[in-house]
Amino acid sequence: MTPTEYEYLRKFLRDHSGLDLSADKQYLIESRLLPLARKAGLSGIGELVQKLQGGSGALVTNVVEAMTTNETFFFRDKVPFDHFRDTIMPEVIKARAGRRSVRIWCAAGSTGQEPYSLAMCLKEMGAALTGWRVEIIATDLSQEVLEKAKSGVYSQFEVQRGLPIQMLVKYFKQTGETWQINPELRAMIQYRQLNLLHDFTQLGTFDVIFCRNVLIYFDQDTKINIFNRLARQIEPDGFLVLGAAETVVGLTDTFRPIPDRRGLYKPNDQRAVAAPRPAHASAPPRMAVMAGR
């Protein structure tokens, strides 16, 4: 790969997905894009770059998706989900007792483990949420991971990462070597393709936003820009949850960390006017009404 080609791809990826590659990630590009180029019948990275410059739509998507890191697992890092159960939801339940509805956004849901972990947490809360409308929206840049997330089918290896065995038995059905999460939990989640670099005001406002292990790939300005826009989609008393290696500190004052609750943030008041709740006009969102048990 020539330096010019590398620079082209760096900029291309920054523009399309926010991915911020340092000057020495040639090996990463080659390991991910060479197989893709070969599959498309191209001789190598050089020809791939030419095709991209020529503006080949399908190829653009494939290149962008091939360069994303989709690694995830159930109850990743555990602590955020303990906070969700012990801090976030009790507060939300109190604050929303009047309207009995909660909206949660997984802003980089990948193959579904994170939104399903939240769904399982909510199910485990049982009676406390009976009669509540619960909306979980999971978005991701990559259509491919969304398809997998929707299917809710996981390999034996995947269901052994982070998922307590009791939860596997309770919420999954085994078919041969794979495990599928129950329809009831699948129905709690609505999946949408969304690039965080683009406008997301149409999603409306949320009580809880999980945005974990995606901002780490972006440069500082992009992070700040996304934090500021997230602040407009969150209720004044809502919660933002970031990944273990992510923080708002030193980047923006639209959010502040919650003391003793690692990874949890609250919006600050001086944020811009909140976007309205979504008009449920186009497609009726799948809103699971929690059944009693």
């Binding site: 890092d77 555990k78 052994q160 990462r161 982070g162 065995i165 273990a244």
Partner: peptide, 12 residues
């Protein structure tokens, strides 16, 4: 993961 799950080692 499984050992962390049952509290034998710290998570992560």
């Amino acid at each position: 993961d499984k050992f962390a799950q049952v509290g034998l080692i710290p998570v992560g």
